[in-house]
Amino acid sequence: MLNGFTNVSITKDMTAEIKKSLEDLAKKTVCIGIPDSTEHPDSKITNAQLMYIHTNGVRNNDMIKEMQHDVNEKGYSAAYEMYVHEHGSPLFRVPPRPILEPAIEYKENQEQIVEIMKDTVNVALDGGNVQPELEKVGMQGQNIARDWFTNPANNWAPNAKSTIDGWMSPWGEFFKGKGSDQPLIDTGEFRKSITYVVKDGDI
C-alpha cells in the first residue's frame, strides 16, 4: 500500500518576503505618457499638451463654446486655449488622433503587457523585487505607444492637403507644409517624448 503523504521540511519561511513583495506591487503604478515639462521644439506648448490636442482634435469656435462647461470642470490651460484659438478656426480642423489608450488596448499589444504583468506577479509570489519587472512593463508600454504612430490599426485620418503642401492664413502669412500625408510624423520629437515612470501610489 502506498501512502500519499510524505514528510516535508521547510528550510526557509518566505511568508514575510512574499507579503512585502505583494504589498510593494500593490503600491506601484506604471504611468505611460509624456511628462508635462517636455516642450515641443516647434511650438510654445508642451508635448503633453500637444498629445491632448491630438487625442481630442482641434475644434471650431462653436464647438469650443459648447465644451466650455466641461472645460471649466476639468481644466483647460492657457496654452490649450491659445493653441485652439490660433489653429482651431472654422477654416481648418485637426481630426482626433488618439495615441495612448487605443495603443495599449489594441488586442495584440494588450496580450504582450498581460504576459509581462504575469511575470511581475510571479516575481512577487517568489518574494522578489518587483521594481525591475515593472520597469519592463513601462518600457513595453512606451514602445507600444511609440509604435502606434506607424501602426495601420490606428486608423488616423491622413494629413490634409494644406498640411502637406502648406497654407495661407487669412491675414496673408504662409505656413510651410510638412510634405507628408502621414500624421504626427515630422521630426520624431513628439513620438520620442513618450516615456514611462514607475511611481508609488495612484496616478
Rank of each mutant, 00 (worst) to 15 (best):
T15I: 04
T15A: 12
T15L: 11
A16G: 09
A16V: 11
A16Y: 05
A16H: 06
E17W: 04
E17F: 14
E17Y: 14
I18T: 04
I18L: 03
I18N: 02
I18P: 01
K19N: 15
K20T: 15
S21L: 06
S21C: 08
L22C: 07
L22M: 13
L22Y: 03
L22D: 03
E23P: 00
E23S: 09
D24M: 05
D24N: 13
D24T: 11
D24K: 08
D24R: 09
L25K: 08
L25Y: 11
L25R: 09
A26F: 05
K27P: 02
K27G: 13
K27S: 14
K28T: 03
T29K: 01
T29M: 04
V30Y: 01
V30W: 01
V30C: 10
C31H: 08
C31Y: 09
C31M: 07
C31D: 04
I32F: 01
I32S: 01
I32C: 04
G33I: 04
G33D: 12
G33W: 02
I34P: 06
I34V: 15
I34T: 11
I34S: 02
I34R: 02
P35D: 05
P35F: 06
P35N: 03
P35E: 04
P35G: 01
D36E: 15
D36L: 13
D36H: 15
D36R: 15
S37M: 05
T38R: 13
T38S: 13
T38E: 14
E39V: 13
E39A: 08
E39M: 11
E39T: 10
E39F: 10
H40F: 10
H40W: 11
H40Q: 07
H40C: 07
H40G: 09
P41E: 04
P41C: 06
D42N: 12
D42F: 10
S43H: 15
S43Y: 15
S43N: 12
S43K: 05
S43Q: 11
K44E: 13
K44G: 11
K44Y: 13
I45F: 00
I45K: 00
I45Q: 00
I45T: 00
T46E: 02
T46S: 15
T46C: 10
N47C: 15
A48L: 10
A48W: 01
A48N: 05
Q49L: 08
L50W: 03
L50T: 00
M51N: 07
M51D: 07
M51E: 06
M51P: 00
Y52A: 13
Y52D: 14
I53T: 10
T55Y: 02
T55P: 01
T55D: 06
N56L: 09
G57T: 01
V58D: 07
V58Y: 04
V58L: 10
R59F: 12
R59Q: 14
N60R: 06
N60F: 07
N60G: 06
N61T: 05
N61E: 03
N61F: 07
N61Y: 06
D62P: 00
D62C: 05
D62T: 12
M63S: 04
M63W: 05
M63N: 03
I64N: 02
I64Q: 03
I64Y: 04
I64H: 00
K65R: 09
K65V: 08
K65M: 07
K65I: 08
